[in-house]
């Protein structure tokens, strides 16, 4: 069984973590879209922490003796999913950055070429 002590320790860590995340969203430093899985994970684990009975049956079912281990297991699974989702998001972002970088280079060349043409035309027409 979980002792009250570990329940309180886990609870404090989770609540302060959740507050931190919410604060960052409030200050527009983190996008809600990407913070949502973290909030979900935090709330879910907090629920198990407050009401370990919720997990008793499930822990029994998968053969985990103690609900506190179930908390770690569920939390770990959440983290794995979130980290992998980040890897996917990073891959998408990195290929977008690549495309933008390439497009900037192509456009910059066109600007340079156009400037040259304009300069030549101006010279021809006697502008300065």
């Amino acid at each position: 069984m979980m002792t009250l002590k570990i329940q309180i320790i886990i609870g404090i860590i989770l609540v302060s973590g959740l507050c931190y995340v919410v604060n960052l969203i409030r200050k527009n430093k983190v996008e809600l879209k990407y913070a949502l899985p973290w909030l979900g994970a935090g709330v879910a684990v907090l629920a198990i922490d407050c009401f370990p009975v919720l997990m008793n049956e499930l822990a029994d079912l998968v053969g985990i003796g103690s609900p506190v281990n179930m908390i770690f297991f569920v939390g770990f699974l959440f983290v794995l999913v979130i980290v992998f989702a980040m890897t996917v998001a990073l891959s998408i972002a990195s290929s977008s950055v690549k495309r933008l970088t390439q497009k900037i280079a192509l456009i910059e060349k066109r600007v340079r070429d156009l400037e040259e043409v304009i300069a030549k035309n101006n010279e021809k027409n006697g502008y300065k």
């Binding site: 950055v97 690549k98 910059e108």
Partner: peptide, 14 residues
């Protein structure tokens, strides 16, 4: 010379 200037280092493939 004709040059495209990448503002970030993309590596050989990019």
């Amino acid at each position: 010379l004709n040059i495209l200037n990448l503002p970030l280092n993309l590596g050989i493939g990019g």
